[in-house]
Structures are given as C-alpha cells and as structure tokens.
Design a protein around this nucleic acid. Structure first.
Length: 490
RNA sequence: CGGGGUGUAGCGUAGCCCGGUAUCGCGCCACAUUUGGGAUGUGGAGGUCGUAGGUUCGAAUCCUGCCACCCCGACCA
C-alpha cells in the first residue's frame, strides 16, 4: 500500500477510485464493468442490508426470490418499460458450449434457445407474471414482497459502486386493491429509505418526485431521495415507484373486489442498491480515507497496543481483553490489533483509511498513568483520558460521532442549495459552487431537456414539502408555481 | 459507436523523438536495529517491455495489423 491518496480537492474522481481500492472496499474485475466487492466492503453492505431488511419486515414485508432470467416476451409486454431498458440488456441465446476439435471451446449453435432470456435489469415483469397466479380476490391483497438480488444493466460507462454492469440491490414489489393504498405504500417506503439514509448512513436526503423525463420506465409516479456529494454533484440514492395498473394490465392480473367487481391490481416497486455504498463513501470521507458512521462501521473501535517488550504487551493485552468484553456487552464491535508485523503509525493510518470511528492507543505510559489515548475519526481529535468508565465514554462517543457526521453533511447540503432567478445565475452557480440549484421551471419536458443539453443539469426532483410560490421559469419565462431542484448528477 | 490517450515486475513509472537487451519508487523475502503517526540499514527475488508480423547485424525504441484498458460524449440506480 502506497502512502496516502489523491486529495479530493485536486481530483475528486481519482480520490474516489483510490479510496475505494485502498480502503479494501472493491476493485475492478476481469469482466468489464463488473466489480469485485472485497470482504471489508461487503461487510459494510451486510450492515446496510441488515438494517434495511429489518425496516422492511417492520413495515410488514417478507422476502422472496424470483428467477434471474426473464423470457424476452415478458419483458416486452409493458411498452414504456421495454423502451426504457431495451438498450442495456444482457441476452442469453444459447445453453451449451462444445469443443470445436481444435481444442477451442465454442458456442454450440445447435443449442440455440427458442426464446432468448434476458438477464433481469429489474424484476417487475417476471414478478407480475408470477403474481397473476397468486391473486384472485381482494382477500389475496396486499402482497408485500421484497427480494435481495443482483441485476444486470449493460451501461456504457461504469464506476465502482455508483454504476456497475452487475449490481446488488433489493427490490420491493407490492400489489394492492386500491390506488390510494398503493400510493400510501410508495410513500411509506420512500420514508423508510429517507429514514435509513439519515439515521444509519448519516446522509441527509431530499424527498421528492421525479419529472416525467426522469420517471422509471413503466411508472405512473417516481418518488426519490436525492443526496448531495462533497463535490457538489447530486446522487439519486433510492426510488419508490407508484406503478398504477400498468403492470397488472400488461400481465393480466385482476382481482374481484368486495363489491364483486373485477379490476386490475395496483402496484408499487422500490429499490436501493450497492450505489448506497458509493453514496456513503462520497458523503463523508476525507483525504485520510473513509469516514464511516458508527452504525454501519464493521469495526467500531480498534485498539492498538504500543509496546517494547513481550511483558508490556501481555499487560496491555490483559487490559484490552477486559475492555473488549465490556464493549462487546454493549453491542460494540471491537478489533484488537496486536500484529507485530506493523508499527503503530502504520496501523493508525490504515484504520483511518478504513474509516474506523474510534481508535484507542495504549502503551506503557498509559498503563502507568491509568489512561488511554482515544482518537475519533470524524474530527481526527485525540485526547488522553482515564481508563475508568472508558466503555461508557466510548459508547457515548460513538453516538456523538454518528450525530456529528450527519450534522456536518446537513450543514454542507444547506450551504449548497442555492436559489437562483435567472438562467445566467443558474449557469454561474452550476459552474462555480455547484450543488442543488433551486429554480422556477415551467413544467414542460421540452424546457427540462433544453436545460439538460445546454448545462448537463437535470431536475433531481420536485421536493415533496415544496412551498408554492409565483415565479417565472428561468429558461422560458413562462409562469411557474414552484421551484424545483436542479443539479449535475452521478 | 464517435473524439482523444495509454499499454514496460504485484502497483506507479523513466527510457521511445535520436535502435545496442531496461531506470527509479512503493510493495515482496531474509537478517539486524526499531515500535506514542505510514521505521532504518544491509542483502535478495521478481520483467520474453500488450500482441502478431515487418525493417535491421541488432527493436521497449522505427513501420503495419490486431487486442486491451483509460478519459470525454451518447446511456444510467
């Protein structure tokens, strides 16, 4: 491992890539556009999964699993859906290889599939085809199912975690007897995502709805949470879609209501992906490496002994073991790093790179004085404190760090939402401080497209809690009733 | 798929213009001294210079084809 990483102020992309690689989160794989998530990175994802999964269960959902392959014909049943995904699908055409006689393995042309299979880019179609058999009556509803899965979208350009050809995610797919209930579900899950982003990831998000241009292919309405990264670019962190009866109609899923009337089922789908890992990294990290919120840190506390002799080490180890047990009893995950192959300074730097929230260093001096040196990752402050009551102080410190990094991110975001009233001002802010730009828009897709072509900025969302105010569109000068949030985005 | 760039040890690189069998740093191995912020010294291992041809007494270097990767654009959770 070479020393340090590129400063994020010099080259944000290089900083991000080096951080992901050097903090042992992930690396590029032999397959173009795909990613190997390394054990340390995956352990963070597992913590995210566990927290989200519990939130899904607490809101009445169950997990299930549907096939990886989707027959091409299913895929094309919903017109907008197929149009949205057609250009980025991996297609399976054969099911067998053979030896060509010269020692080369080739595709066996005799083993051509009658109907091609699409590797799922999302599972609405295969799931709604399945739901048809599950639903006859209003008594069968609602169906509240989630699946943890991998999906494939053949993107032209990829980036570790933020956009990879294959990615891990969860996708919820629910079926309801009324539109109102489905909309309520859509909003409920958006709130779950926002709750997770803010309380677990310590990342403030704006809840809003997408414009027609940015809407999910096949949805009636797309709700989203939008986060702001430290370089001033926005990141869509999660989406929740009200699908209306589009998929029920495409897959002929009907139910008999209490009143005896036959109607199509109402649907929602919602998902977050390993992209959240990218968001987590970019939201908090600095030039020393990753900064993890304690609630998602696989290692919350690391203890580094500093010793000159085996006797010193034995004493420190005894102390560390006791502290370890005390912290463990509080549900805090601890690593005691007594490797003698690395020196303390190296370990300090390494755990900073990996974002461990709290580091305790303890040496002979401390053992004599009854103290330890405690360092917090978020502010990099160090202090020497008494060993008495240490476990309680660490517990409080972890909570403090969780709060502090959220507040820091919140402050950054507040400072980077800029209201503008002219197109000139709009472009200036985009090219200067960046961030979210709050501006009046005439509500037409044409204006949105023009602005995107000219500035690369898109409407990230129309915030849910938007205040209504008279104004004129910064681009067309037409009347507008509210501001929307623009930004350049990942 | 369009525009630009790069391929030299596990990683990052010098050398290429002007041809003579490869430089430096990190990492790795051994030993010693070290250990409160990324240790130091000594010794060592590791490269058919992306690939296939061509020119030449001789190619990392010049020429041609191919391949791979990166950046910008179209696409996008």
């Amino acid at each position: 491992m070479s020393k340090g990483i590129t400063s994020k102020n010099d080259d944000y992309s290089a900083w991000y890539n080096e951080l992901v690689t050097k903090a042992d989160l992930a690396e590029h794989s032999a397959v173009k556009g795909c990613m190997v998530i390394k054990p340390y990175g995956y352990s963070i994802w597992e913590k995210m999964q566990a927290a989200l999964d519990k939130m899904f269960k607490d809101t009445g959902h169950s997990n299930a699993y549907f096939p990886l392959f989707i027959p091409k014909s299913f895929f094309s049943k919903e017109a907008a859906h197929v149009e949205g995904f057609a250009t980025e699908c991996a297609v399976v055409t054969h099911y067998r290889l053979k030896n060509d006689g010269n020692g080369n393995i080739i595709v066996d042309e005799d083993a051509k599939l009658e109907e091609e299979l699409i590797v799922r880019p999302t599972s609405e179609t295969i799931i709604w085809n399945t739901y048809r058999g599950w639903i006859q009556s209003y008594r069968d509803l609602p169906i509240l199912v989630n699946q943890w899965a991998n999906v494939v979208r053949w993107e032209m350009r990829t980036r570790l975690f933020l956009r990879t050809t294959e990615f891990l995610w969860q996708e919820g797919h629910t079926a309801h007897s009324t539109a109102a209930e489905a909309i309520e579900e859509t909003e409920r899950m958006l709130n779950v995502y926002a709750d997770f982003a803010e309380n677990w990831m310590a990342m403030p998000v704006v809840k809003g709805i997408k414009t027609a241009n940015e809407r999910f292919a096949g949805a009636v309405e797309t709700y989203c949470i939008e986060a702001l990264m430290q370089d001033g670019k926005a990141l869509q962190a999660g989406t929740s879609h009200f699908l209306g009866q589009n998929f029920a109609k495409a897959f002929d899923v009907k139910f008999t209501s209490k009143e005896g009337k036959l109607d199509h089922v109402w649907a929602t789908s919602w998902g977050v992906s390993t992209r959240l890992m990218g968001a987590l990294i970019m939201a908090h990290s600095d030039d020393s490496g990753l900064v993890l919120p304690p609630k998602l840190a696989p290692i919350q506390v690391v203890i580094v002994p500093i010793y000159k002799s085996d006797e010193d080490l034995a004493k420190i180890t005894e102390f560390a073991d006791n502290l370890h047990a005390e912290l463990k009893a509080k549900g805090i995950s601890v690593k005691y790093d007594d490797r003698d192959t690395q020196r303390p300074g190296f370990k300090f730097a390494e755990y900073e790179l990996k974002g461990v929230p709290v580091r305790i260093a303890i040496g002979g001096r401390d053992m004599e004085n009854g103290t330890v040196e405690i360092a917090r990752r978020d502010t990099k402050e160090k202090q020497t404190i008494a060993q008495d009551g240490l476990a309680n102080r660490i517990e409080a410190l972890l909570e403090d760090i969780q709060t502090n990094i959220y507040q820091k991110a919140l402050k950054f975001r507040s400072e980077n939402i800029t209201e503008v009233n002219s197109y000139e001002e709009f472009k200036q802010v985009l090219d200067g401080k960046a961030g979210f730009v709050s501006a009046h828009w005439d509500g037409t897709p044409e204006t949105e497209k023009k602005i995107k072509e000219e500035t690369k900025a898109t409407i990230r969302c129309i915030p849910l809690d938007n205040k209504q105010e008279e104004g004129v569109c910064i681009y067309s000068g037409q009347a507008s009733t509210q501001r929307v949030l623009f930004a350049r985005a990942y």
